[in-house]
């Protein structure tokens, strides 16, 4: 098996995550779609690290992980505070700026 299979799998997962972000309206599911995209990028980075025999790709994946954790914390806090004020977790209901 060639390592390209990993790359194709990562691409498919990324596309599914992107479709989730585009189609779903529940903010939490949209957020999980973002997480899926980040994860597939990590798979890509790990595979390329193996291609090149260089661990920098893994280090980058590690940083992606840490930043994703921080992003999840802030994003979920935003979702919770929006839910508290507007009683909704749907991304369609966040239209306060629409005149």
């Amino acid at each position: 098996m060639s390592l390209t299979n990993y790359l194709v799998l990562a691409a498919i997962l990324f596309a599914i995550g992107a479709t989730t972000v585009l189609l779903r309206r529940n903010a939490i599911i949209v957020f999980m779609g973002v997480e899926l995209m980040l994860n597939s990028t990590n798979l890509l980075l790990v595979t390329f690290a193996r291609y090149h025999g260089n661990l920098t790709g893994q280090v980058l994946a590690f940083f992606v992980m840490v930043v994703a954790a921080a992003e999840v914390v802030v994003g979920l806090a935003i979702i919770v505070s929006i839910f508290r004020t507007r009683r909704s977790a749907s991304v369609d209901d966040v239209n306060l700026l629409k005149s």
Partner: peptide
């Protein structure tokens, strides 16, 4: 439908290029 199209298109393009 636009979302489905965009998602499938993205998948095909990415998988095609990468593969």
């Amino acid at each position: 439908w636009i979302g489905v199209l965009a998602g499938v298109g993205l998948g095909v393009v990415l998988a095609g290029v990468v593969g």
